[in-house]
């Protein structure tokens, strides 16, 4: 025991003895002497930085696009069109051409559409689900969510950033597939006018424009899927759970679509709309089909965005 303590004890001892209990704090307040040195700082509302939303979004994008797992998935998706292209080239060289093979082998741009129709059913949705499903659940599981919200990121603001990030990633996925397919197609197949499904021929420039439209459409579909994954992500602290749930949903939809008796509900299933990008291969472009698809994507985004917001804004963060 130090001498200082003993003195303090003696002083304390002179006071009337009291049973411990609720002691009013103001009794021996010394806060008057411990005022902040810069009282002017107090009470002035902390100014919001005008670019703060974009700064957080940039941080989020940096995290997403530097994460090795995500880069690996993008790379894997980029390889698929190359494999498809090489396989078609080999097949086209061996025997007589016919059907889809003839379409592709006849023009370099067609590989993009073929790649989309392969990948849009499962692989692209899976990759988007991994990022979007991980977005809230992953932070919750790692405990970083509590520090983000205490920063304070703001729940609605954070959710908006997470969703925009997922949308950007969805378009990155779509663009990687398109660019890889385009490059492979140009390397392996003749460039020139494009013959559409309806038999008419368009110029190569027009063909490229239609690829851009297809990318916009498929990206929107992936963004709608990202909204579903994000909503599921707010319900768990285990990101694998949210990711797996989204993938299971996609597979269930694909199975339901394959059952002819359930034809009535297929228009309402999200994956049904993914393949509508082939509307750009009609002449003129089947804008009705694209419009319906985009409407469905919008409805999914609004519905699942609302679910995500309702859940996340009221959720207790206990991780």
């Amino acid at each position: 025991m130090s001498t200082a303590d003993a003195t303090a004890g003696a002083t304390a001892g002179t006071r009337a003895r009291r049973t411990p209990g609720l002691v009013p704090v103001k009794e021996t307040l010394r806060s008057a002497e411990r005022r902040p040195r810069h009282p002017a700082e107090r009470g002035t509302p902390a100014a919001r930085s005008p670019w703060s939303f974009w700064r957080l979004l940039r941080s989020e994008l940096g995290l997403t696009f530097r994460r090795p797992r995500n880069l690996l998935m993008l790379a894997a998706l980029g390889v698929v069109p190359v494999v498809i292209g090489v396989a078609l080239r080999v097949v086209a060289g061996e025997d007589g051409m016919g059907g889809i093979i003839e379409d592709v082998a006849g023009n370099s741009l067609m590989l993009t559409f073929v790649s989309f129709s392969f990948l849009v059913l499962l692989l692209m949705p899976v990759v988007v689900s991994v990022v979007a499903g991980d977005s809230i659940a992953g932070e919750a599981g790692a405990g970083t969510l509590r520090y983000l919200l205490a920063a304070p990121a703001g729940r609605t603001r954070l959710l908006a950033v997470k969703y925009l990030n997922a949308v950007v990633f969805a378009y990155a996925v779509t663009a990687v597939v398109a660019l890889s397919a385009l490059a492979t197609g140009l390397a392996l197949f003749p460039a020139g006018d494009v013959t559409l499904l309806s038999g008419t021929t368009i110029s190569m420039g027009e063909g490229l424009l239609r690829i851009v439209i297809a990318v916009g459409y498929v990206g929107a579909g992936m963004a709608a899927l990202a909204a579903v994954a994000l909503a599921l992500s707010t319900f768990t602290e285990v990101s694998i759970g949210a990711i797996a749930a989204t993938i299971v949903l996609i597979i269930v939809c694909q199975v339901l679509r394959a059952i002819p008796e359930l034809g009535e509900i297929t228009p309402y299933l999200l994956p049904t709309r993914f393949t509508n990008f082939d509307a750009v291969l009609r002449d003129p472009v089947d804008t009705a089909a694209l419009g319906e698809g985009l409407l469905a994507f919008g409805a999914y985004i609004v519905l699942f965005g609302s679910i995500a917001w309702a859940r996340f804004s009221g959720k207790d963060i206990t991780s």
Partner: peptide, 13 residues
């Protein structure tokens, strides 16, 4: 730290 700083709307980059 940069990540958590970005989350604070009043912090300047």
């Amino acid at each position: 730290l940069r990540r958590f700083d970005a989350a604070d709307p009043t912090a300047r980059g």
